[in-house]
Write a protein that binds this DNA or RNA. Sequence first.
RNA 1: AAUAAGUGGAGAACCGCCGCUGCCAGUAUCGACUUCAUGUUGUCAUUGGUAGAGGAACUUCCCGACUCCCGGCCAUCGAUUGCGAUGGCAAGGUUGCCUCACGAAACAGCAAGUGAGGGCGCCAGACCAGCAAUGGCCUGGUGACUACAACCGCAACAGAGAGUAGUCCCGCCAGCGGCCCUGGCAUCCGACCAGGGUGCGGGUAAGGGCUGAAAGGGUGGGGUAAGAGCCCACCAGCGGUCGUAGAGAUACGUCCGGCUAGGCGAGCGUGCAACCGGGAGCAAGGCGAGUGGGUCAGGCUGGCGUGAUACACACUGGUUUGAUCUCGUCGCAGUGACUGCCGGUGAGGCCGGAUAACACCCGGCAAACCAGGCGUCACCACGCCGAUUCAUCGGUGUGAGACAGAUGGCGGUAGCAGACAAAAACGUCUGUAACAGAAUCGGGGGUACAUCCACUUUUUCAUU
RNA 2: CGGGGCGUAGCGCAGUCCGGUAGCGCGCACGGUUCGGGUCCGUGAGGUCGGAGGUUCAAGUCCUCUCGCCCCGA
Length: 97
Amino acid sequence: MILVYLRNDLPYSRFGFTASRRVGNAVQRNRARRLLRESIRLQLDHIEAGWDLVLIARPAILKQSFQQVDVSCKRLLAKAHLLTSSVAVPPEKDEIL
RNA sequence: AAUAAGUGGAGAACCGCCGCUGCCAGUAUCGACUUCAUGUUGUCAUUGGUAGAGGAACUUCCCGACUCCCGGCCAUCGAUUGCGAUGGCAAGGUUGCCUCACGAAACAGCAAGUGAGGGCGCCAGACCAGCAAUGGCCUGGUGACUACAACCGCAACAGAGAGUAGUCCCGCCAGCGGCCCUGGCAUCCGACCAGGGUGCGGGUAAGGGCUGAAAGGGUGGGGUAAGAGCCCACCAGCGGUCGUAGAGAUACGUCCGGCUAGGCGAGCGUGCAACCGGGAGCAAGGCGAGUGGGUCAGGCUGGCGUGAUACACACUGGUUUGAUCUCGUCGCAGUGACUGCCGGUGAGGCCGGAUAACACCCGGCAAACCAGGCGUCACCACGCCGAUUCAUCGGUGUGAGACAGAUGGCGGUAGCAGACAAAAACGUCUGUAACAGAAUCGGGGGUACAUCCACUUUUUCAUU
RNA sequence: CGGGGCGUAGCGCAGUCCGGUAGCGCGCACGGUUCGGGUCCGUGAGGUCGGAGGUUCAAGUCCUCUCGCCCCGA
């Protein structure tokens, strides 16, 4: 997946989820978006306010379970220094989405 | 019993927690309208309840409902600056052997597609007749089956020749031109005349050969130097007139014609025939606001959350100021019945007008019908409330409907599949489904599909 | 909801309109040139024309269905 973020100078953050036709057909694009949305929903309390974030799905997400997607998502947020409190971020492993 | 194919049906279970979208109800805040009080309604927050993808939702090959837009020329009639009605033509569109049926849902009509029967052509097989060529008949298969005899266009290579056919080889010919020989004109030569030869030029497409997917009727006679539909008779084939049979395609018969015409109408050219108003699509379109609404920022004020609680910060409703952008809403939602009302359609029917009369036509009526609206009732699924004989009854509520587009995540149980282990069972671990996601609705066709069930058929094995 | 286009050799494209030989450039292989490499010269290999069916004597080309990809309009 790809994370694009930009400071919006608002007291809250906004999120967008995108899956292009390269990801697959309508069913597969819907599933990719839902996985990303659920992963962000569980992290809402730990994400800094004042940012616009867009998560872009890549075709490899279809082969991953939700846990793998969630780990990748957390790792991306930590890399962008968008997490507020200390969240247990798993260490980097070999497989990277 | 296994296997494969086809057709039809089913096509993802249950419980808990968190989350999303619509609707309903309660609570609270603020605003608007109204009232003597009350109340109605909108928005946001929050709580509870409830509903929430498919057989193909895919595809877009089609049709319809529904909505909007548009229409050339001529004639007649009525009106008399635009217009309306009727008829015709043009343009455009569709179809292409015939009939019937399905698709086909108000009268009529309706496509993609499908079925049955028939006609004609072609192919294969059996039988019959005949020495044979061939013909007849039956069965099966197959055909996008209007016309290349209106026009335009196309055909590589090979071959003599491929579109008003053509002489390359073998043949045939001596009428014509040339050459040679003989004879005649008293003699020689030339010319001329007669006869013969030659196939060089030439004629000949009748016979054979060669090339190719394809090479321009058959028999007999006349005719000719030799031949040729060159001419004639008959036959085959083609076009047409008329008659008979049939619902029609068409078949049979008759006469006439020109004598032969080859192939490709899947060549999106074109001609012909028949039929038909056309086009766009819910991003259709209607309504409202634009002094409105959305977004952002500031002020005032209410709610709620957090913290260190007379305060600060975040979010949010109302109001107001500024900037910026068009926005909101309807269309838009169970199934079925009642015909209760309204609306619509109304072929055929009835009545009236019109006519000498009938038909057409005009007006009306109503049966029947409808995918439209309202209303009532029933049913299905689920929830809530009440009652009781504890399984029913009664009451009540809901029925996907978004507008960057809602169905997801986690845990557990069961089932299934695989692996370990194993005589089997128990057990442990892993995985959890194929094709695929609603956007106005309905219907037909096509395509994709794990697994299960039913039926039919193919093949193999076992038993009798 | 409607309209249009593309698919041909490893890659990029002609040929399709109007049927008959599948070709061009780069790349690849071999040989030559050079002390060696590149450049250059010569020779050569390589394509079920997305798939299925049909029309035709003959289909990359025409027709029908189907698969994949791309674009446009409201």
